[in-house]
Nucleic acid binder design. Structure first.
Lengths: 166, 166
DNA sequence: TGACGTGATGTTATAATATATCATTTCTTG
DNA sequence: CAAGAAATGATATATTATAACATCACGTCA
């Protein structure tokens, strides 16, 4: 995977013509590392679900995953998919977008982070940011009201630069 | 309704013993004003749904509302509830919490705002903040990646001060 | 090695959330 | 009041998610 630094900030969304196979390969390698480190099994089903999520930079729903798996010939039921999603989510390998009931692959599963998600309503792509200023603002506001944060959901919907200009 | 300024920041969540009937009365008056201003009809059904949402400072799901209405003797179907919810949401009288699939009443429906929601997992209460620092951080991050914001979802889960200390 | 325990997946059923569609009623306004 | 628009009623169904129990796969240690 191209490291974070390979992108200028305006390229948080990957270029349209980018070599996506590199994203996928790298994501798989990262996932393997994380599973190893956590002593968790990256089973065939988990790998399949993970790969399907990484087919694009869009978020994908559980039932779209189910359909994709079944299209591949396996007769799989919803719980199987949801279990894989839960596993991957817990390890931080994917993130759930609450406002879409959908999942997408994390770029940087190796470090804990409070991410923020930019979601383009036109092209459907999702980009994850880890912006300290946003995180700090949230933490500061929480401190002011004496709220103990356990999880945050920050989802920003609109138009990515490509879609806004073309 | 107590105006925003009546609360110190640490009282974003209302006091346990507060006079809730004042919240409800005030919310109803505000809602009427907003509907008037928008030339929108605050029908019986909409008023009922709105009042039920304001029964507490927690978020309530569509089907909990449905049950509550039916418990009151009316035989109402899901679309009726969802329509009222859509109407109220569009006017900004209530907000949807994406991570809960639930709705709760807005304190300050009269002005447009990008709100942030603190959700206590213990007592279930939701508090809305309108924190410029958070909003600004989001807008700044969006500007940096040339993203055109259309909507934001900022939901912060954890423990409110009451629940963290008792 | 092989019985066991654990974790993963299979299977069936159903719960919970949400919307499409068309019929009917109610409100507004000319 | 009549006509059109808006709201609700009613029916059906789509979409998202989980409970519960059965079976399978894998590591481990006697």
């Amino acid at each position: 995977m191209a490291s974070r630094e390979d992108f200028a900030m305006t390229d948080l969304f990957p270029q349209k013509g980018h070599d996506h196979s590199r994203c996928v390969d790298s994501a798989l390698r990262e996932a393997e590392k994380v599973c190893d480190a956590e002593n968790a099994r990256f089973t065939d089903m988990r790998r399949l679900v993970f790969s399907l999520i990484w087919k694009s930079h869009k978020a994908i729903t559980a039932y779209e995953l189910l359909d994709a798996i079944q299209a591949g010939g396996q007769r799989v039921q919803p719980p199987t998919v949801y279990r894989a999603l839960e596993f991957l989510t817990q390890l931080g390998l994917i993130h759930r977008i609450e406002s879409l009931n959908a999942y997408f692959g994390c770029d940087m599963p190796h470090h804990h982070h409070l991410g923020q998600y930019f979601i383009c309503r036109q092209c459907g792509r999702v980009a994850e940011a880890v912006d300290e200023e946003m995180s700090n603002a949230v933490r500061k506001a929480a401190r002011q009201v004496q709220f103990r944060i356990e999880a945050t959901t920050i989802e920003i919907k609109g138009l990515c630069h490509d879609c806004a200009t073309h």
